[in-house]
Nucleic acid binder design. Sequence first.
DNA 1: TGCCTTTCAAATGTCAGACCTTTTAATGTC
DNA 2: GACATTAAAAGGTCTGACATTTGAAAGGCA
Lengths: 244, 244
Amino acid sequence: MKIDPTKPADLSAQIAAAIRDAIVSGALIVDERLPSEAELADQFNVSRPTVREALKRLAAQSLIRTQRGATGGAFVRRLSYEDAYSQQITTSTLLLSMNAVSFDTACEARYALERACAPLSAQRRSADHLATMRAEIFRQGQPGLTDEAFCASDVAFHRALVDGAGNPVLSYQLAGAVEAMQPLMNMITFSARSRTEIVALHDRIAGAIEARDATGAEAALRDLEVYTQELARDVMAERAARHG
Amino acid sequence: MKIDPTKPADLSAQIAAAIRDAIVSGALIVDERLPSEAELADQFNVSRPTVREALKRLAAQSLIRTQRGATGGAFVRRLSYEDAYSQQITTSTLLLSMNAVSFDTACEARYALERACAPLSAQRRSADHLATMRAEIFRQGQPGLTDEAFCASDVAFHRALVDGAGNPVLSYQLAGAVEAMQPLMNMITFSARSRTEIVALHDRIAGAIEARDATGAEAALRDLEVYTQELARDVMAERAARHG
DNA sequence: TGCCTTTCAAATGTCAGACCTTTTAATGTC
DNA sequence: GACATTAAAAGGTCTGACATTTGAAAGGCA
């Protein structure tokens, strides 16, 4: 692992990249301890603060964890599904909010992905997943629920749907897409009537999943997508009218 | 934005979280300049190195960029699709390599996602996407291609397929799934016969996409998934036999 | 006046050294 | 042998300094 002190890039960035490469390539394995900060500073011929900045970069990506004390140090960290989830949600949320992604585009992507795991979910869902879906449907029917709480329950419902597929990689991929949609969904004010409609569609989905009916689940998801797009269009139109 | 100096978490982590929240919530907008390191150190009542560690964490997530000089400083960065791509690929690759994800699970997730955008791609693909797919198919048929080059071409082919859907959010989501599979795919040694088979399936996919045949594309993708799983099983079996 | 050069100041990048806190392990005492 | 003490190692933080980069203001010259 070597760095070039004359290159324009920051030394800490170069050091971080060198260590990251070592981890990704497998030269450093999980739970292996890196040299101490002082030793790294010596190896790379830089000062300790510079090494620390590099390590913080890696920590921000959940690539290492640090531990104080006599046997402490920086250790290669096993990237857990939870870490990957939260990173993906942050990235997806920012991507959507910073790049003027249209509601239609995001919605289309989300439901396309969700339909992809509907057949698997219909095939493998446990009673537990089904119970979660039913419980969220019930909650969504309660009067007095705020729009935010309704959206949160919506996310939980769809989360149970994708988890039902029993494929953690799929769940990880979908988590970002579904959760990142939430801020966009929160723009919509759900009338009592639209809530009834959505709950009915959720019920259709849950019913199809319970009956192991992949085709029915996909069709219901498609109807839900269409209805969601309609709601969004109404909100946009009303907003435009109010400002025009 | 406040931090608690008595909490167990690192000060730099707390500061990074506070700034990150401000960005995600929209309190800091794109291209806005953060206070200088000295000012931040003053605000948070910490030293400049601590502030710098926090900023490096944010830089590692592409949330800010820094610029030297008189009008320099840290600026909120617009997260581009390219940045999001590469972050997702890194995360997905590590997730797969560090968590003993089975080939079957990863493969199933990948093809489920890819089938999700097949109908959209069949509907919207441009002549350009089609040409790219054909070109990669041709390359895959060339003799003397290394396994790595074959896999890279495979990735390019599938990339053109998902890009054909014309939905950048979908492309972003799939980039991680497909690229992260590559190291796993590289375990497979492709015989001349299996390459012929794969090229034929690719040809079926391209033909269906060209003919706007969504159902045919999905069916071909499913066959490709089954065949890929078969190849992987053979490799595993042979490897097990050799070591047994 | 207008353009060019010089200078300066602000901000990040880097360094050196010190001290604090945490944690473990070795040491020593009862 | 069990417990308390101590020492050492490592990360966490601070202070102060210097280097480098870069834009803008100041000043000089035609």
